[in-house]
Design a protein around this nucleic acid. Structure first.
Length: 194
DNA sequence: AGGAAGATCTACT
DNA sequence: GTAGATCTTCCTA
């Protein structure tokens, strides 16, 4: 079993490349001594001032300043009544973050079921708001470092054969011309099938 | 201080 | 497929 967390240099690359490469990796959330885990199966890349759909589009604010900061940090923000889990990722001097949109649960499923009011494992983490609820993730994890294995959240490498699909980002009002959503083809835990 | 927007989810038809 | 719930943050006054 690969226990080591992906290191800083993994996140210090073009946001789009990091979003694609996070597919198939294992997200680990430590909560009250228990490890809740899932394979990342859907992500989206968000840039800075050139991306109208990005939280960084209108400039630095207190809540979004981490998008300018150190890659590998957790960036949390709110939509409706849900928390969105992002990992800061960009080349040196750039701005950007990757939204984790869906997971395939692999450990701690009983706890996840208790955190959600749905009976279907399929519905547990198949959306950005759903997965933060299932994993007990909220604003308190803002700024956490995912490169620290054994921390409250980290991401570990994993050996898994996957086929990557792309599409436009979901739910954004003004998208960029390029496709910035990445997903594992055929995976049952996606927020959308394609 | 108040209103509006939003990278959503659930339930219902 | 569509409506409504609901909460954090921002913008204007």
């Amino acid at each position: 079993m690969t226990q080591e967390a992906l290191q800083r240099d993994f996140y210090e690359r073009n946001t789009k490349a990091v979003a694609r490469d996070l597919l198939g990796k294992r997200l680990v959330r430590r909560l009250e001594g228990e490890a809740l885990e899932g394979i990342i199966v859907e992500t989206e890349a968000y840039y800075g001032l050139r991306d109208p759909a990005s939280r960084a589009y209108s400039g630095v604010k207190e809540y979004n300043r981490l998008m300018w900061g150190e890659p590998g940090r957790v960036f949390i923000y709110n939509v409706h009544r849900y928390w969105m889990l992002n990992v800061v990722a960009h080349e040196p001097g750039d701005v950007g973050a990757v939204l984790i949109r869906a997971l395939e649960p692999t450990a701690g499923i009983d706890v996840m079921l208790a955190n959600r009011s749905v009976p279907e494992t399929r519905e547990l983490t198949s959306g950005p708001g759903k997965l933060t609820m299932a994993l007990g993730i909220d604003k308190r994890l803002h700024e956490a470092d995912v490169t620290e294995g054994g921390g409250r959240v980290y991401i570990a490498s994993e050996v898994r054969e996957i086929e990557v699909g792309t599409s436009h980002r979901i739910g954004v009002t003004t998208d960029l011309p390029e496709e910035l959503r990445f997903y594992v083809r055929g995976n049952p835990y996606l927020s959308r099938r394609r």
